[in-house]
């Protein structure tokens, strides 16, 4: 089921639209200046950028954890309000998966994954039932009663991912979820995520500074080059799906990677070359 993604011809409704986003921790060093981009429903988009450019800050803005100083963020048709507001956002929530797994060490896998359901008022029994249903798909069968410290790094990230999927949101924000894993685990997690995503087609915005990872997983890669970010370059990844890790060996992949390196600029290209 190969599907070429051409953003201009895509008629799917918008899952996320960011318009004129401006944000700065202090005024002399703005992180985002009048930044705009959109993601369509069911799209897998990666945000590729060198470290220190404010990727995590962008995610926190999208998640409503920070308030932008200018511009708007819309999830579907709904505007994102900071969650500190007295009234609770009933809908338009997102599934946020942080860089570290941030699981609760005092909760079992089952209750960690059920957190989002629990917070939206679903009874514990029902929440647990829904988690149980998904455990096999997420490769977590038999870990129901385990605590996070009894799991490997990869398994913990799976639980964290399941938690964000069940968080209730249509859009999933994944913040460098595999960056802390060793290379082998990372590859198997990437393949696993590909497989899950190709089945469920949730809308995903994925932050990474790993070019291979971005190209392998995404329909579209947004490249942020330098701070402050105001325009992001875009690279459509028209590789056929389903993909596996073998895809990185294809000629078409190498071609895309060369383009991505070009978009990141020579500086980044040299860094990338040195770190490989």
């Amino acid at each position: 089921m190969s599907m070429a993604i051409t953003p201009s011809g895509d008629k799917r409704p918008l899952a996320l639209s960011v318009e004129g986003l401006t944000y700065a921790f202090n005024e002399s060093m703005p992180l985002f200046a009048n930044l705009s981009f959109t993601i369509r429903e069911g799209e897998f988009v990666s945000l590729l950028a060198p470290s220190g450019i404010g990727k995590t800050t962008l995610f926190r803005l999208l998640a409503g954890l920070l308030t932008p100083q200018g511009g708007s963020i819309r999830l579907g048709a709904e505007k994102v309000e900071p969650s500190g507001a007295a009234h609770r956002r009933q809908s338009g929530r997102i599934g946020y998966m942080p860089q570290r797994d941030s699981l609760m060490p005092w909760r079992s896998v089952l209750d960690n994954a059920a957190l989002g359901l629990e917070l939206s008022g679903i009874p514990r029994r029902e929440a647990r039932r829904r988690v149980r249903e998904l455990l096999p798909t997420f490769g977590l069968e038999g870990t129901e009663e385990k605590r996070p410290h009894e799991l490997s790094g990869g398994m913990r990230q799976r639980v964290s991912f399941l938690r964000s999927v069940l968080g209730g949101g249509e859009l999933l924000l994944l913040d460098e979820p595999f960056s802390a894993l060793d290379a082998m685990t990372r590859i198997s997690m990437q393949e696993w995520l590909l497989q899950i995503w190709e089945q469920h087609r949730k809308t995903i915005l994925f932050i990474t500074h790993d070019i291979d990872e971005a190209l392998l997983l995404s329909d579209r890669v947004l490249v942020a080059e330098a701070s402050p970010v105001s325009i992001m370059k875009e690279l459509a990844v028209a590789l056929p799906r389903p993909r596996t890790y073998q895809t990185v060996l294809d000629d078409s992949f190498v071609l895309l990677k060369r383009q991505a390196l070009g978009l990141l600029g020579k500086e980044a290209a040299r860094q990338e070359g040195a770190s490989r």
Partner: peptide, 29 residues
């Protein structure tokens, strides 16, 4: 208390009370 847990909860629309009971208290034990 692990601020990451708090952020995940807030992104899921957790209220102050939820944050306190489900995150802060167990973290402080």
């Amino acid at each position: 208390a692990d601020s990451g847990i708090g952020e995940v909860m807030r992104s899921m629309g957790a209220r102050r009370r939820d944050l306190f009971l489900k995150w802060k208290i167990p973290s402080a034990l």
